[in-house]
Design a protein around this nucleic acid. Sequence first.
DNA 1: ACCCAGGGTCATA
DNA 2: TATGACCATGGG
Length: 222
Amino acid sequence: MKARSGRLRAVYRRLFAAYGPQRWWPGDGPFEVMVGAVLTQNTAWSNVERAIRALSEAGCLDPRRIHELTDQHLAQLIRPAGYFNVKARRLKSFCAWYLEQGGRESLARLDTTALRRGLLSVNGVGAETADDMLLYAFERPVFVVDAYTRRLFERLGDLEGGEGYEAIRRLFESGLGPDVGLYNEYHALIVRHAKAVCRKRPLCGECPLAGLCATGGGLGGG
DNA sequence: ACCCAGGGTCATA
DNA sequence: TATGACCATGGG
């Protein structure tokens, strides 16, 4: 995957030059990162911030407190994040598992494969949410693949379109080599870039990826 | 009024 | 394995 490596690094350099360091994950501390990872599922981050603020002001930004809340009360607190009934259940099942595993110290002793399996066993924690937690809360070298990543690299010509989550993740991880700091910034920059480009006219002249399309002389889109 | 957002689960074929 | 329905708020 050496040919990939060059392209993946070239895209990264362009994004970093255009947007600078993103300082992810926004928020405070590993547990808040994990809560945010669940709350942000298919949801704008601005809405997640309100929900986290409400949890914080209620003194409930804590696994035991969340676990003790009723579904209704928790749903009320996280209401601005959308899907509040679903996410209340997900947060509670996650906290139940988290406490049962002995908390962060205990989980941090697991190797990445075992930790990932554990996270994925929680109802409501899928591949991307688990990888958000692994990278941004546990600082493991796991590349997070989201809808923006797919869209961007399909437009750049590096993805055909039908690849599964794991295939894309392996592509990045084998192409870049294990590097927590790089993965952290790369995913954040992809999200940052997605917010910057016009969805209806992805090939705008100001695109920092102009000229990087793999299949021809075209412009790299958003 | 419409589209979208830092997904995941479950039922169905 | 692969679709589709469903979840729900807030901003553009």
